[in-house]
Design a protein around this nucleic acid. Structure first.
Length: 571
RNA sequence: GCCGACGUAGCUCAGAGGUAGAGCAGCUCACUCGUAAUGAGCAGGUCGCGCGUUCAAUUCGCGCCGUCGGCUCCA
């Protein structure tokens, strides 16, 4: 975001705070920064605000903006500021000031409202022309769930009305692409409170999409030297104790008891893969060993975080665990990144990378963590791949490279992740026989490419806006007749196409062509084959392509080849 | 989990302290109609679940479940 917009939004958040203080005496202000999509301000106000209040606040904001009140910066000694905000009865500002070590702080005053703020700000409220308050939400003071929950008001502001309207249009577009809405419209999946929150039920259209993604993945993994394995869904509790999951991940796990023995339902797939590794003595010549599983895991996510397919309680990861010698780390991490690049290119995603380091709750020695973090950084640095650092956000057993996808409308989603682990090989006493005849400890990489199939599918739905490329479209071709006369002919074409493995549907209802086309368009089916008297006489097809182009007089063979080509070229 | 809003027919949504409507979808009938909705008729709901207030509650109150917008957390 550019700096001008940043200042404008920050000033708009102050404008909102002033309006709120005007309208609701006794309100205490917390913080109000500009953000990527606009701004917010957190307030402590006991009765809370209602949606109608937003309109009132917006109205008051307009008045203050019109009054064109100057915004004045003033330096204060820190102690002086503490005294000032104590007098103003603004405990949150005092709280902030107590953590500032600078002897002097800046404040900004507009009319009756003074805020502790680094700035900079616009010279006066009259410069604020285009803004809108968007939503109301709860937010913890200083982002900690142990603190008081404040009320946050979100809004946005732009330099002019047009940009604001463009943004509002964009928000509507986002709504239209929402995978939960499209999931219903395209009959892809459902999540029912009768079966349970966060548990996905795939309908035929969603199931075929999942099948296609999984089929794609299996092929791509085989090409790259991965071996398929399968593990059980429940493993004895002792295993989870040994791995550290019980200690570090218990609150996310489900447990069950069978014949007085306790089991944990797997939240991750690594333990079975470790058992495969352990099943034989391994030679340095065997490494790297790459075990792949479309592994379904269950995690107890807090109720408030569930969100369509993006955040669920049971999901399937395209998970692999790679066992290797330490000196193979660089090469292997690099090939995984290349793998991610290859796959994301096919789907048309750009991505960004992030390295996450040791979290508070973790296992393993300091040296191992340092070594693992260094290995990850070294690969990205030497390949000159840019990345951000996310301190303290690693998995409990090792640091990770997270890959965030940017979808068609610029939103970011975390899907792929590569985690470097020295701890579990230690805990499970894994080893291999090295060339010098000594037993050595392998390193383990945990990695996913798509991440969770559910989330990736959700991202894909929104990325394509439901218009899946031909190779992924649940129904690739809809064949429709015009009158009953063509029914046998159209059925024969349908049978041939299905036989050729093309996902075809047939609409021979006694309905007008306009209706059939409309319904097919709404289902976002890539190809519509229209057969009337003319086509039947010429032994040809008229094909209406989703984007509106029409293929006239194409033979059935040519059309079948065209769809097949779309499949092989994945387009 | 926390804050707030919401939960009425398969879907989208109206509505009111006296046990409910619309459009689309569905079913039936007629129409055989060439590029985004043919017409008519019919059927469809213990108004999320439980408890309470009331002569009476789906409408008011409380609790639970779920959804949505966020926060915290995450693939």
């Amino acid at each position: 975001m550019n700096e001008t917009l940043d200042i404008l939004r920050h000033s708009t958040s102050h404008l909102m705070a002033q309006a709120v203080k005007d309208l609701f005496p006794g309100v205490k202000v917390a913080i109000g920064p500009s953000i990527e999509t606009g701004f917010y301000y957190d307030f402590d106000y006991d009765p809370g605000f209602t949606e109608e209040d937003l309109t009132k606040i917006e109205q008051r904001m307009k008045e203050i903006a019109q009054a064109d009140i100057p915004i004045e910066r003033k330096m204060m000694k820190r102690d002086e500021a503490i005294e000032f905000f104590t007098r103003m009865d603004e405990p949150y500002k005092v709280d902030l000031l107590k953590e500032i070590s600078d002897p002097e702080v800046s404040t900004y005053t507009q009319g009756s409202f003074t805020d502790l703020c680094r700035g900079p700000h616009l010279p006066s409220t009259g410069k604020i022309k285009a803004f809108k308050l968007l939503s109301l939400a709860g937010a913890y003071w200083r982002g900690s769930e142990h603190n008081k929950m404040l009320t946050r008001i979100y809004g946005t502001a732009f330099a002019d009305k047009k940009s604001l309207n463009d943004y509002i249009t964009f928000l509507e577009e986002v709504k239209k692409r929402d995978h939960r809405r499209l999931g219903k419209e395209l009959d892809l999946f459902s999540i029912s409170d009768e079966t349970g929150a966060g548990l996905v039920i795939y309908h035929p259209n969603g199931a075929i999409l999942r099948y296609l993604l999984e089929d794609f993945e299996r092929k791509e993994h085989l090409k790259r030297g991965y071996q398929f394995v399968y593990g059980p869904h429940i493993l004895k509790l002792d295993m989870w104790k040994k791995s550290g999951h019980f200690e570090n991940y218990r609150e996310n796990m489900y447990f069950t008891k069978i014949d007085e023995v306790e089991y944990g339902i797997k939240p991750m797939n690594c333990l079975s893969h470790i058992m495969v590794y352990k099943s034989q003595i391994r030679s340095y010549r065997d490494l790297p060993l790459r075990y792949f599983e479309l592994g379904t895991v269950s995690r107890h996510e807090k109720s408030g975080v569930l969100h369509g397919l993006m955040r669920v309680r049971e999901f399937t990861q395209d998970d692999a665990h790679i066992f290797l010698r330490p000196e193979q780390l660089h090469q292997e991490i690099l090939s995984i990144i290349r793998f991610v690049q290859d796959v994301m290119t096919i789907f048309g995603f750009q991505f960004e990378m992030e390295i996450s380091t040791r979290p508070a709750k973790s296992i393993g020695s300091d040296e191992d963590w340092e070594q693992a973090e260094a290995a990850l950084k070294e690969v990205l640095d030497s390949e000159q791949l840019p990345y951000d650092l996310n301190e303290g956000d690693g998995a409990f057993y090792g640091p990770k490279i997270d890959i965030k996808l940017k979808d068609a409308i610029g939103r970011k989603w975390q899907c792929a992740t590569i985690q470097c682990d020295f701890a579990l090989p230690e805990r499970f006493d894994l080893h291999y026989m090295d060339s010098d005849g000594k037993r050595k400890r392998p390193v383990m990489l945990h990695r996913v490419i798509l991440g969770a199939i559910e989330r990736f599918l959700g991202v894909l739905i929104e990325h394509y806006g439901g218009k899946f490329p031909v190779w992924l479209a649940p129904t690739q071709v809809m064949i429709m007749n015009i009158t009953d006369e063509q029914e046998p002919y159209v059925r024969a074409i349908y049978d041939r196409m299905v036989n050729e493995g093309i996902r075809t549907a047939l609409d021979i209802r006694n309905e007008k062509l306009g209706l059939k086309i409309r319904e097919s368009v709404l289902k976002k089916i890539p190809y519509m084959v229209i057969v009337g008297k003319n086509e039947m006489e010429n032994n040809s097809l008229t094909v209406r392509v989703r984007d509106g182009v029409e293929l006239k007089d194409i033979t059935v063979d040519d059309f079948i080849n065209k769809v097949k080509e779309d499949n092989t070229l994945r387009r």
